[in-house]
Nucleic acid binder design. Structure first.
Length: 421
DNA sequence: TCTGGGGTCCTAGGACCC
DNA sequence: TCTGGGGTCCTAGGACCC
């Protein structure tokens, strides 16, 4: 049996941990640039505000209900996520961290599954005040279904176990296909056009036909719904295949210099992420685009792939390569809205290839020393304390985050204060 | 006026090789 | 009129997830 544990309204729950006055009150967390709603409390869901709603469309409704609105604080969420996962590691034999707020757990061989699951939930609630739900079933896809039920229906008290074939069938008969893990908008529409609307109907399909029509992904879904596991628990941390940094600007940018500063800054952030993961990269993709929602303005998107002469993870040379790429794709006359950098071909530091012109890797020693010094200073005094000059003084592109909560758990300066009367 | 960011996997088709 | 076959690798694009 496989369990899926999932935090309820995770980002909102993180904000409430340090703002207990917001329990049972409407709360939302916004995306980057305060653009969209990406986490909603139950009170917000009850108002009918959908996931990813643009803030400007729901602002009035939020005001009417005096909702608390937070900019995203990913340092806080990542830190609390790590704490949740460490509790799970202590309580479950095998854990696969699936996302910032979800993990698959191995429940095979456990005597009283229900009791164990409730104990896990209680521990997380006691240590971190974060509410969770757990779904348990023979496969990952069915565990997702069970988790969905546990969240939607209070009678499960946070834990839904699907084990008996008859129970599974009864549940799948009313479970809409669009709620199945792995079925998105496009495939749901195609399945419906074929007259398949429930999970039970999908379960009855011929796997070979599904493979022909919906690739091996569709075939696996059918098996998984039938209780035959195709997606196994993977407790080992998987190596990353790509790392990216992309952001929309707070205001449209028309000048090359302004976009260049943003790209340089993203390159710095990317370099930091690479070092954090003990990786280097040999391939970058730089991209820029105009605002896709602004239909009146001329639209432009372009990207360029850059093969680096040697594997890198230092700020200065990644900035240089990124700007070189930007120069190739930047066209004047457009209002740019967003830029991004992706590092592909990630190489562990332990397996670095040296070049003909730098056989001992000496050329990079200086750049690496500088990067290490930057990391130390910025770790101690906060990100962005010192940065490369290419990132510029203007920061006119920098994202809006007007309603961000303090970094309660990751910054000495922002530790919460407690007063005793 | 204002619409996120960071990932994964799969396939088809082209380039290339022998 | 006839113009090989089989294999690998790479990339772009599509679909999905949270």
């Amino acid at each position: 049996m496989i369990g899926l544990i999932d935090a309820n309204n995770f980002y909102v729950s993180c904000e409430r941990l340090f703002r207990p006055d917001l329990q049972a009150k409407p709360v939302v967390v916004l995306s980057n640039n305060d653009g969209c709603v990406i986490s909603r409390s139950n009170e917000i869901k009850a108002l009918g505000i959908p996931m990813a709603a643009p803030l400007f469309q729901v602002q009035d409704l939020l005001d009417q209900h005096q909702a608390s609105v937070f900019s995203s604080n990913f340092a806080l969420y990542a830190d609390l996520s790590a704490r949740v996962m460490s509790i799970l590691e202590a309580l479950a034999p095998r854990v696969e961290v699936y996302s910032i707020d979800e993990a698959f757990l191995d429940f095979s061989g456990i005597q009283d599954i229900s009791k164990t699951a409730q104990h896990i939930r209680e521990q997380i609630a006691a240590c971190l005040c974060i509410p969770t739900c757990i779904g348990i079933a023979p496969t990952k896809t069915l565990a997702k279904v069970a988790n969905h039920l546990a969240k939607k229906n209070p009678r499960y008290k946070g834990v839904c176990i699907l084990e008996k074939a008859s129970d599974i069938e009864a549940v799948l008969e009313t479970f809409p296909i669009e709620d199945i893990w792995g079925i998105g908008r496009r495939i749901a529409a195609r399945l419906k056009a074929l007259g398949i609307t429930t999970a039970e109907e999908l379960k009855q399909m011929d796997p070979r036909w599904m493979r022909q029509t919906f690739t091996v992904v569709g075939e696996r879904l059918v098996y998984e719904l039938n209780g035959i596991s195709c997606l196994h628990l993977e407790p080992e941390i998987q190596a990353l295949h790509s790392i990216q940094v992309s952001r929309s600007f707070s205001t449209p940018l028309t000048q090359f210099d302004a976009v260049r500063e943003a790209v340089a800054s993203y390159a710095t952030r990317l370099a930091g992420k690479l070092r954090q993961h003990h990786l280097k990269t040999t391939t970058l993709v730089i991209s820029v685009c105009t605002n896709r929602f602004q239909v009146r303005n001329r639209r432009y998107y372009n990207s360029i792939l850059i093969n680096l002469p040697t594997a890198l993870n230092d700020d200065s040379r990644l900035i240089a390569a990124s700007i070189q790429g930007l120069e190739a794709i930047f066209k004047t006359g457009f209002a740019y809205h967003k830029a991004g950098i992706v590092a592909l071909e990630l190489i562990p530091l332990t397996a670095i290839q040296l070049t003909l012109f730098d056989p001992k890797g000496e050329g990079s020693a200086k750049a690496q020393q500088i990067s290490r010094a930057l990391d130390k200073i910025n770790q101690r005094y906060g990100r962005g304390t010192v940065h490369m000059a290419a990132c510029g003084p203007r920061l006119s592109w920098r994202d809006k985050k007007s309603r961000k909560s303090p970094s309660y758990t990751t910054s000495w300066r922002q530790l919460p204060k407690v007063f005793a009367k």
